[in-house]
């Protein structure tokens, strides 16, 4: 099943978001304009706008208001990707060259800042101060998480708790906040938007764990980068953490550095798989997904429930 099929019931609104995104990144500067449109060309799953729209359906669904949140969150996500590519010195994203590769770091910095400013402009169409408090706290926490990720690079003695906190900030937080803000924009009562935050948080955790598993088990063609690249970059993800419970495997993992070659990495990946770490990681991802589905059950009836459940299950089963 493809995401586009899952999105079928609200395609009109998503098309509107897509058109507005084009407008949002248009600029008087030809360079910013070209760079921003290069980003949009690469597409993306638009998972955050989808969660905003669906969560708003638990309240008063007014697309003219809700679209501002959906756009703001997608733009924040996009801006963070542009800056992440500078941080990671990445050449490619979603099969297309990155802005820092096509132009340079400086242009990527300016484009990212421009897009972030645009996102805040859209947000200010929302007059509820609560929405701004929620989003601004999330942005600060998200960046703090990225700083911690750099601090934790090649730190092989980190705990499961360190990892979970990192992926919360890296991925789960923005998805959780997408759900929460969609519901706030839909003017739902607090018990609804708080539950939707939890739903998004659990989904986000499951999503990132699956992403971290795929980094070890997918092919270079599927990933657009060599398998095990996260570990090579010093990011200790869940499969590696589980596998390090075995001293011999731990000793091998601890030798990994930026220059570790593909052959060595293949052997290490094989060792990680043999410890059962992939399966254990899948189990934890599944547990988060089950928690998300349980939260969904507690929510009042809405036409958003079915698509949210379908998307949750899609996330649990995705292969790349």
């Amino acid at each position: 099943m493809k995401l586009t099929w899952l999105y079928r019931s609200f395609k009109t609104d998503l098309d509107l978001i897509e058109q507005e995104l084009e407008r949002a990144v248009s600029s008087n500067s030809e360079l910013v304009n070209n760079a921003s449109h290069q980003l949009l060309k690469a597409g993306g799953k638009r998972i955050r706008p989808v969660f905003v729209l669906l969560s708003a359906k638990f309240g008063e669904y007014r697309i003219d208001r809700i679209k501002n949140i959906a756009l703001a969150l997608e733009l924040i996500h996009t801006a963070s990707l542009v800056h992440d590519d500078v941080i990671d010195e990445a050449d490619m994203r979603r099969g297309l060259p990155t802005i820092n590769y096509l132009w340079d770091d400086r242009v990527a910095m300016y484009t990212g800042d421009y897009i972030l400013a645009r996102s805040l402009e859209y947000m200010t169409n929302i007059t509820d101060p609560l929405a701004h408090k929620v989003l601004s706290r999330a942005i600060v926490e998200l960046v703090t998480g990225e700083i911690d990720q750099i601090k934790d690079k090649y730190r092989f003695d980190q705990t499961l708790r360190d990892y979970l906190r990192r992926i919360k900030r890296k991925t789960a937080l923005l998805i959780a906040v997408s759900c929460e803000l969609g519901a706030i924009a839909g003017q739902t009562p607090p018990d609804i938007y708080k539950r939707l935050y939890k739903f998004g948080y659990f989904i986000g955790m499951s999503y990132q764990i699956t992403d971290d598993i795929l980094d070890f088990v997918s092919t270079e063609e599927e990933l657009g980068k060599p398998a095990g690249d996260d570990l090579r970059q010093g990011n200790i993800t869940l499969p590696a953490l589980y596998a390090m419970r075995y001293p011999l495997v731990k000793a091998e993992i601890e030798k990994v550095n930026r220059d570790t070659g593909k052959d060595v990495m293949s052997k290490i990946i094989q060792q990680i798989i043999e410890t059962g770490a992939i399966e254990q990681s899948h189990q934890l991802s599944r547990r988060y997904l089950d928690k998300a589905l349980a939260v969904l059950e507690e929510l009042p009836d809405s036409r958003a429930k079915k698509p949210l459940k379908e998307i949750a299950n899609y996330i649990g089963k995705r292969k790349y």
Binding site: H83, M109, D113, E121, T124, S136, R137, I139, V140, E146
Partner: peptide
Amino acid sequence: LAGDFFSGLYYLLLAEIEDIQLIRTLANAI
């Protein structure tokens, strides 16, 4: 990340005092 962090702080500071118009003014300046 420092630049992103300080940008986030500007937003947080103004969100806390609920000055949405100034958030907009400064976003437009950026």
